[in-house]
Computed example of a mutant assay.
Amino acid sequence: MTAPLHWQLPPGAVGRRLDQVLAELLPEYSRGRIQHWLDTGQLLVDGQSRRRRDKVRGGERVCLRTDPVLEVQTAAPAQQIDIPLVHEDEHLLVINKPAGLVVHPGAGQPDGTLLNALLHRNPGLATLPRAGIVHRLDKDTSGLMVVAKSLLAHRSLVNQLQARLVHRDYRALVRGDLISGGTVDQPIGRHPQARTKMAVVASGRPAVSHYRVLTRFGHCTLLGVRLETGRTHQIRVHMAHLRHPLVGDPVYARARQPFPAQAAAAQALRAFPRQALHAIGLALAHPASGEPLRWEIPMAPDLARLLAALEQPLPEGHQ
């Protein structure tokens, strides 16, 4: 038996249901699983059993007395779906997730996901929570993801993520002309009105994004972004908070906000079909050896084509 896992409930969660707050605090575990732990007394709050509907005071200490990895989590059909492979060994699988691929099944997407593809590639992953998936990318975000292939790797990756030891680098094309880089240190939680969206809210979980300017196009800017935390929609929310939402973002960018008619590749910008976000770099410690590992991949082809179009000179008469 491994040592119990500990967390602290955010102070801003006061008054909310315990199971709801825990589901946001522990996104790697399903809400149903968290409710089971509460119902059976395996998940304690300040050393006491609590009901799932109890209200949070804020700041409570949470302790999980069972080993979550030893419980079989994944029950989904295996499906043959192509997933570009970047690295594989006994403990790790690193992939280049294409845009348009959902990471795991959910409401409105019962199959056809990365999880289904992983189970087809390696049926043994069914013994791990979420088939070894320890972090996510949005459906229309492309790029690097790491998947655990063993219990050792799952525990190690979850611990590294919680300790902010996994480095994730992104390329983001945002609207507007940014002069310099900076850091966004703003908590993220559910939008108070639109529950399918996230937002910067005082009651949210800590979220930190560092960004630097790579290329300025005048009407939009290519950024390099490094995450300290991994909140849902973090880069998309933080950039929108700066009033520089991602190009093509259907949720956080104002759809009716036009690009200048004279802007380079204005038509290509308007037609870009997804948020212009690509996970280009990933670094972590190998779960077994502790060796530092780093991967970097090329830009996603559709985003590379858009950037190439933006770099073309304006036609005569538009200078």
Rank of each mutant, 00 (worst) to 15 (best):
A3M: 09
A3H: 09
W7D: 00
P10G: 06
R16V: 07
D19K: 11
V21R: 05
Y29F: 13
R33G: 13
D39W: 15
D39V: 12
L43W: 05
L43N: 03
Q48L: 14
S49E: 14
R51S: 15
R52C: 15
D54Q: 14
V56I: 02
R57L: 10
R61W: 06
R61H: 09
T66A: 12
L70W: 07
E71Q: 14
I81R: 06
D82R: 04
V86L: 06
E88M: 07
V94K: 12
V94T: 04
V94H: 03
N96G: 05
G100F: 10
P105T: 09
G106E: 02
G108C: 11
P110L: 02
L115W: 03
L115V: 14
A117Y: 11
A117W: 08
A117I: 09
L118W: 00
A126R: 15
P129V: 10
P129K: 15
V134E: 00
K139T: 03
S142N: 11
K149A: 08
L152P: 07
H154Y: 12
S156W: 04
Q162F: 10
L165C: 05
H167N: 12
A172D: 10
V174W: 05
R175Q: 14
V184A: 10
D185T: 02
D185Q: 07
G189V: 01
P192V: 13
V200E: 08
G204H: 06
Y211Q: 06
L214R: 05
F217T: 11
G224M: 09
E228C: 13
T232C: 13
H233R: 08
P250V: 05
A264T: 11
A271V: 02
A271T: 10
I280F: 05
P287A: 09
A309V: 01
